[in-house]
Design a protein around this nucleic acid. Structure first.
Lengths: 219, 219
DNA sequence: ACTTTAAGCGGACCTCGGTCCGCATCATTA
DNA sequence: TAATGATGCGGACCGAGGTCCGCTTAAAGT
């Protein structure tokens, strides 16, 4: 919708501009001085609100007020609420991406793909366990669930590892199935609602990975 | 939230009252005459709105107006928007449940569990292909994604079949992984955004089922 | 038929996400 | 330093979901 402003075909850093395969988002292309200052203030204010009232307390108006900034500014900078929340997860996301893209094995490169897949799942499970409420709140509407850049990066990564482990398979689809298991909503459901311990989820993940990557065709 | 009215611990038929394992939702326990009439009017109005403007056009106020009824009445009857949308899917859902609970094999009872699982996936894929927009619109917030009764029924069913096929496995978790693949948002993403043909999804499902149900432990 | 009462009704009201547009401000060029 | 666009800013405004509460009415009891 919109796209009325010529220089803004898409909101500035709504969902992390172009990190795609391995580039992490630039720390803002070339933001005007006041804009950059306001951005920092907004993120700080939002962080404080999360700490005080949880993710549910992060209202666009509240954030704007807490940062002494107009509401329009928040939207201009982050596009929408999920954009702001996603930006709040940026630090954690960078660390995570750094870990599986260039960190030590088995999560990073160097280990066999199956081990890396296992490690990836465990890492994501733990991370979700921590920032659960933020991740849930940052979830876009179903139509856009897979459009935010972090998701796409995770998906590509898993697809890649899968392709290495089983070149003949439909890695795209397999990756989709695997990522479904790691969806924040799923994890929330299993751990918080069904009270499953994390170890059980990890065990389940390992089993899943093993079965989806073993070479010989079933039956 | 709410639970202020003593006789209404949860909205009447917000998400299909108690069909649980195999009971389909009663056609309304004991609704007062005018209430039943209004309910019918509302559903009819909503259906018309969907036909005319798509699921996005189904505004609570619009439905109320189209049914010549107060807005409060809509909420009293259906709890919230997702409740109304879910009710709209009720017919289709009943048919589907009837098919896999007591219809002809291989979807219904009589076939080996693996075949039933395969059939179940294909059936759900097709159904989602049809009522896609309604199903997406009826998706609740991430925290509640798994609370609507239909989902729970599907999950139980898959868990059951899985347990029959592989009694020693963690069927709950496996079912979760399988159901993730059949999530409306996922299907929407793969078919509409990535333009994958349905056959590919079906093939992927079959592969998934085969690998998750084959007896011998991998590696 | 009359009373009673719980269920139902309606729409004013609130909150919050998102848009719009006139005005201010930064950066650039002269 | 002054002029001048482009970029950013702010907050009034809108629409939609959801709540509230006083009034109405169906239906069960007498």
């Amino acid at each position: 919708m919109s796209a009325v402003l010529p220089p803004l075909p898409t909101p500035p850093d709504a969902h992390e501009p172009e990190l795609l395969q391995l580039g992490l988002p630039e720390d803002e292309p070339c933001l005007r001085a006041d804009a950059a200052r306001n951005r920092a203030r907004l993120l700080e204010a939002a962080t404080r609100l999360v700490a005080e009232h949880g993710a549910a307390g992060v209202t666009m108006e509240a954030v704007a007020a807490a940062a002494s900034v107009g509401k329009g500014t928040v939207f201009r900078r982050f596009g929408d609420r999920t954009g702001l929340l996603t930006a709040l997860l940026d630090h954690s996301e960078r660390n995570f991406q750094a870990a599986f893209l260039s960190g030590p094995a088995p999560l990073g490169p160097g280990a066999p793909p199956v081990d890396r897949l296992r490690a990836f799942g465990h890492a994501l499970l733990r991370r979700s366990g921590d920032e659960m409420d933020l991740m849930l709140a940052a979830e876009p509407s179903p139509e856009r669930r897979f459009t935010p850049a972090p998701r796409r990066v995770h998906h590509s990564h898993v697809t890649l590892l899968l392709r290495q482990a089983r070149p003949e398979a439909d890695s795209e689809l397999l990756a989709q199935a695997l990522m479904g298991y790691l969806d924040p909503a799923t994890i929330h459901h299993l751990t918080r609602r069904c009270h499953m311990p994390l170890e059980r989820l990890e065990k389940g993940w390992d089993d899943l990975v093993a079965r989806l990557t073993c070479a010989d065709p079933p039956r």
